[in-house]
Measured scan of single mutants.
Amino acid sequence: HFTSQQLQELEATFQRNRYPDMSTREEIAVWTNLTEARVRVWFKNRRAKWR
């Protein structure tokens, strides 16, 4: 589960860029205190939901 702060950060990034690269995902991981893998999976799932 994600905190509302984490989701806000993830959503804001998603609005700007639906396909963040590795370095962007790592930055998000640092800001949100999540692993890069969790961030990558979140984006994958979010893109699926967005379609």
Rank of each mutant, 00 (worst) to 15 (best):
H1N: 11
P20W: 04
E9W: 15
A29K: 01
L34K: 04
Q5D: 10
N45M: 14
S4T: 13
T35G: 03
T32L: 15
S4F: 12
A29T: 02
K44P: 01
T3Q: 03
K49E: 13
A12L: 11
D21S: 09
V30I: 13
R51S: 08
Q8C: 14
S4D: 11
S4M: 12
L34W: 05
A48H: 08
S23F: 10
V39C: 02
N17M: 08
M22N: 06
N17Q: 06
T35H: 04
N33G: 15
R38D: 15
V39K: 00
Y19H: 07
V39D: 02
T13S: 15
T3F: 04
R47Q: 06
L10M: 05
K44H: 09
R38W: 12
H1K: 12
Y19L: 04
R40F: 06
N33D: 09
T35W: 05
A48Q: 10
A29N: 01
A12D: 09
S23Q: 14
W42F: 03
E26P: 03
S4C: 15
R18P: 14
R18H: 13
F2E: 03
S4H: 13
E27Y: 09
P20A: 06
R51M: 10
S4Y: 13
R47V: 06
A37R: 11
E9R: 15
T13K: 09
Q8V: 10
V41P: 00
F14Q: 02
E26I: 14
K49S: 09
S23I: 11
E9N: 13
T3Y: 03
V30Q: 14
R46H: 05
M22C: 09
E11G: 00
T32H: 07
W50V: 08
L10N: 00
R40C: 06
Q5Y: 13
E26G: 06
Q15W: 08
L10H: 03
Q6N: 04
V30E: 13
E27T: 10
W42R: 00
Y19T: 05
F14M: 01
N45F: 12
V30S: 13
L10D: 00
I28S: 00
D21V: 05
F14H: 03
L7K: 06
R18N: 06
R16W: 10
F43Y: 07
S4W: 14
H1Q: 12
I28M: 03
F14A: 01
S23P: 10
Q6C: 05
R38G: 08
Q8E: 12
T3K: 04
Q8N: 10
A12M: 10
T13L: 15
R46V: 03
N45E: 14
N17V: 08
F43A: 00
R51N: 08
A12F: 11
E11F: 04
K44N: 07
A12Q: 10
A12V: 08
A37M: 13
D21L: 04
K44I: 14
T32S: 06
N45S: 09
W31S: 15
R18A: 09
K49P: 05
R47P: 01
R25G: 02
T13Y: 15
R16M: 09
E26K: 14
F43S: 00
W50K: 06
A37C: 08
A37N: 10
Q15F: 07
F14D: 02
F14L: 01
D21Y: 03
S23G: 09
A37D: 11
V39E: 00
W42C: 03
A48T: 08
E9F: 15
Q8A: 13
D21W: 03
W31Q: 15
Q6V: 07
N33K: 09
F2V: 07
R40A: 08
E11V: 04
W31T: 14
S4P: 14
T35P: 07
L10V: 00
T13N: 14
L7V: 09
N45A: 12
Q15H: 10
E9Y: 15
R47A: 04
L34M: 09
E11W: 05
F2C: 08
E36R: 02
D21N: 13
E36Q: 05
E11R: 03
D21M: 05
T3W: 05
R25M: 09
K44C: 09
V30C: 12
S23E: 12
N17K: 04
T3H: 04
N33I: 04
E9V: 15
A29P: 02
E9H: 14
A48I: 09
R25L: 11
S4V: 13
E9Q: 15
T24A: 12
N45I: 13
